[in-house]
Design a protein around this nucleic acid. Structure first.
Length: 271
DNA sequence: ACTGGCTCCTGAGGGC
DNA sequence: TGCCCTCAGGAGCCAG
């Protein structure tokens, strides 16, 4: 599923291909996504150039002319395909943007994705306004992070998924980062010392950066839908490994529920 | 102000 | 072989 590193990988691949391209048309086949696709969207964006593609958390922002922009989120099963020419529409293909020589299409079986519009400063949009800091931005993990984490008493695993505290961390990286930091996912934020909070901040950046570097392979999958996605799969240390030995100590990895979400951890390495 | 539970949706996988 | 049940997940929303 698209996590922050994959969304950033998509952004990096897409931006040079679409920057400067003019939108010829927008076709919406299924407007009932996470939020309804605005009916007037096609009228607003047709004829405009894409000036920039940016990312905030797991949101992609397609900047257009006249301070218009499109907000796209992939949800958990959304895929963006950029092709040279229009293809027959398949099941779960919900919309496509036709550019001068290319077509950008959204495929999303579970329909948790979204396509919205905005005008002016994207950061003021309700979905973006309350987002916390970007973990990969310079300076993340300093005093502000330590203070914010320790001000909360929810399980740290849940806090990592709270976009107001930190933007874009998903279920996989929350488990992975806590394993790297040696912190029990059930531990309350306010029971994590300042030193360990800093270590966690570093661990988050580490797992995201590693995945981002491996994301170059996801790029190939993105460009060539026939490619075998399994061969490029990143090897998680604990995520999805219930019952397997911990890569560090050999203890059996456990899976527990925290806030309705699966969490994987090593009971020996994480406290 | 926080926390935890619910919700949207469909495909996959396990049990019988 | 096939049906049914449960679960997975992003993240906003809401009740307590």
């Amino acid at each position: 599923m698209p996590e922050l590193p994959e969304v950033e990988t998509i952004r990096r691949a897409l931006e040079p291909a679409i920057r400067g391209c003019r939108i010829r048309s927008l076709e919406v086949w299924q407007p009932r996504l996470r939020y309804p696709v605005p009916p007037e969207l096609a009228r607003i964006i047709t004829g405009q150039r894409i000036t920039e593609l940016s990312r905030r958390a797991k949101y992609l922002i397609f900047h257009l002319e006249e301070q218009n922009w499109l907000l796209v989120h992939l949800g958990m099963s959304g895929r963006l395909h950029l092709t040279d020419m229009a293809e027959a529409r398949g099941p779960h293909d919900h919309w496509e943007i036709r550019l001068s020589h290319r077509v950008l299409r959204m495929h999303d079986p579970r329909r948790f994705s979204l396509l919205l519009k905005g005008q002016g400063n994207p950061g003021l949009h309700p979905l973006l306004a309350s987002l916390g800091p970007e973990p990969l931005a310079p300076g993340f993990g300093g005093p502000a992070w330590v203070q914010a984490l320790r001000a909360r008493k929810a399980p740290v695993k849940s806090l990592l998924l709270d976009g107001r505290l930190i933007a874009g961390v998903g279920n996989i990286y929350a488990s992975e980062a806590l394993f790297r930091a040696g912190i029990d996912p059930r531990r309350s934020g306010n029971r994590i010392g300042a030193t360990r909070a800093r270590i966690l901040g570093t661990a988050i950046r580490l797992v995201l950066k590693e995945a981002l570097e491996a994301g170059g392979s996801t790029l190939r999958d993105y460009r060539h839908p026939n490619g075998d996605p399994g061969s490029f799969r990143v090897r998680w240390r604990v995520y999805g490994r219930e019952g397997e030995p911990c890569p560090d100590c050999g203890e059996t990895i456990r899976r527990i529920r925290i806030g309705q979400r699966s969490s994987f951890f090593c009971p020996s390495c994480q406290h």
